[in-house]
Nucleic acid binder design. Structure first.
Lengths: 349, 349
DNA sequence: TTGAAAGCGCTACCAT
DNA sequence: ATGGTAGCGCTTTCAA
């Protein structure tokens, strides 16, 4: 059942039927209702391929997922983000094109998507401090929104970012309020933009309390469980080990817990830990970490915002670059509530 | 730059240029080289939208990711699978359409994809024991391949599955060889097909050793860390607790470790654990679990197989239903090697 | 308010 | 081996 068939059945022209179905104003209400009814009755849905050619838009947003050759855990944040973006796409009739490429061919993949006209816009994931993809997409004249930012890129572009600096400044300050002055930071890879911003926040908090950041306590690496484990072990072996740590994600935080357990230590008693993550399902309702805190960043919400912004740009509903900062809250996520000292500090903030 | 422009530049017809570019045999080698050269020089790539309309194929495979309303961890297996499938798609010029829907609207989503002609085929994820999607897709006349199977569906359909039954039979048998006779099973949700097959394997192994399966030791649930934790705690409180367990995934296995740790017990010494999972990155190189074993099921490889099969079906390279079983190996994944008792058992197998 | 017809950019059939 | 041309199924002018 295509438009021609449908219009024949209705005894109307394809033009009118098309207009009726697409909400054009110049169709009489009677006709519109009739058309809609018959369309539904015959289970008509317009052919997406034809529509795309005729309109010149693909109604598709591209997401590129770079997967490195070396086995790297696929970022769990990615899935959450996609879920949020996907919601918005469905609501607006967009499809989501997911391109899995190994990171060497990444540029080629963007280029192909653009030149083939396969997508109307692209979402950039995991920006580096100095990310070449931004210039590439500008060059290709492809609408895009970055999830995060790229500090060294000076041109104007659209982004939606979480306030990573402030999140880590608060997390660190929170621990300082508890009386800590040896606070370690377990961060992501040093060339990632978010990692740089988190470092800045961490250092700012320390400096505000007249603490000189100790390079020995500042760690960078891929955020795996084992990374958390190894780094925590090393930190514990220092002559003057930290008494608290801010951790970039729940995954290394699991490793931290394991390392501490191995040393007979306990989170919330012997080590205060603040983890920056959205997904607390690993720890939720366990009652195991009375002093375990989390910074909620709402990756899923970020996905929604990025998708909306991009669609608005594409459809011209929004002009210049969309730049949006999402603030995060510092929450104590455990059912048993925070330890007493922590609760006191919380109330001060 | 479109085909018309390009053919004008070349002084050839669109037909010839198209043929040259698409590898048709009736073009002279000289022309072909010339065309390819000029195409490259002018950075020509054929418009995907036009191509799709003209050929009647969308060169796109759909994956539907159902996300339930209640916060559920997005299955990490999904990402691995997608990575494998994505490779094959790239190699064959297919795009991957990812549709994120809440599980109530899932059927509608399949229907829309089919009727709009947005995809040439669909991959079905996470089949239930009795999965309605199979009949739906057959009804829609949409080529599809199931990752896994649906035991209660009697019709013939294409699937690629891991031998879950055998994996759990071997894992359980392996533990029995170590002398265990109280072996718990931490399985996935009971209505998932893979969970049923794993249960069958588990029971078969026990029965082969004249052990009557104890319902108290058989647990089903969503595979979260907390699930592993809670279940393990309950198991330890039994009058006659298990001495070993087979676990369905690495995530609950992490919870198991935590529960054991809380009780002063250690994997490999006080509790033998076999976990069925692909991703050992949580534990790799830690040397922490000399007796921790894993069944590698190669989800990524499964993604590749499913994608290839589907493409072969679509292009008619393969006839009837594609049904493929992937075997798994039982491996001791730790750098420190298995504990002595385990090593002995391994050698017998 | 409705309809006829010209594209959108490619493929594929039928000629030559 | 090469070219002319009729679609693919829709949208969108332009005319009525």
């Amino acid at each position: 059942m295509n438009l021609k068939d449908l219009s024949n059945i209705l005894g109307l022209s394809q033009t009118t039927v098309s207009r009726a179905l697409n909400g054009y104003p110049e169709v009489s209400e009677a006709t519109r209702l009739k058309v809609q009814e018959v369309a539904r009755a015959h289970n008509y849905s317009p052919n997406a391929r034809a529509k795309r050619l005729a309109t010149g838009r693909s109604m598709t947003i591209g997401h590129i997922l770079p997967v490195s050759k070396k086995h790297e855990m696929v970022n769990p944040v990615f899935a959450d983000f996609i879920a949020g973006a996907g919601e918005v796409y469905s609501e607006n009739g967009y499809d989501l094109l997911l391109s899995v490429v190994d990171d060497e061919n990444e540029a080629e993949s963007y280029r192909s998507l653009a030149m083939r006209g396969a997508v109307d816009g692209i979402v950039v994931h995991g920006p580096k401090v100095d990310d070449a993809r931004i210039a590439l997409l500008q060059d290709l004249d492809m609408p895009f929104v970055v999830h995060g930012r790229s500090s060294h890129v000076k041109s104007d572009y659209s982004w939606v970012d979480v306030n990573n600096r402030r999140a880590f400044e608060r997390a660190t300050g929170f621990l300082m309020d508890l009386g800590h002055n040896r606070i370690a930071m377990l961060n992501g890879l040093a060339d990632m933009d978010f990692a740089v911003r988190r470092t800045i926040g961490y250092e700012a908090a320390l400096k505000a309390g007249n603490i000189v950041p100790d390079p020995e306590l500042m760690c960078f690496g891929e955020m795996t469980e084992n990374y958390g484990f190894e780094v925590c072990r090393k930190l514990l072996e220092l002559p003057d080990p930290p008494t608290a740590m801010v951790v970039s994600s729940i995954i290394p935080a699991i490793g931290v817990r394991r390392a501490l357990g191995g040393a007979g230590l306990k989170i919330g008693r012997d080590m205060s830990v603040v983890s920056h993550d959205d997904d607390l399902s690993y720890f939720r309702n366990t009652g195991d970490f009375p002093a375990f805190t989390a910074v909620r960043s709402s990756v899923r919400e970020a996905g929604r915002r990025v998708a909306s912004a991009l669609i608005n740009m594409i459809t011209g509903r929004e002009e210049g670059p969309h730049q949006e900062m999402l603030e995060v809250e510092l929450t104590v996520g455990q059912s048993t509530g925070p330890a007493p000292a922590m609760r006191r500090a919380m109330q001060q903030r």
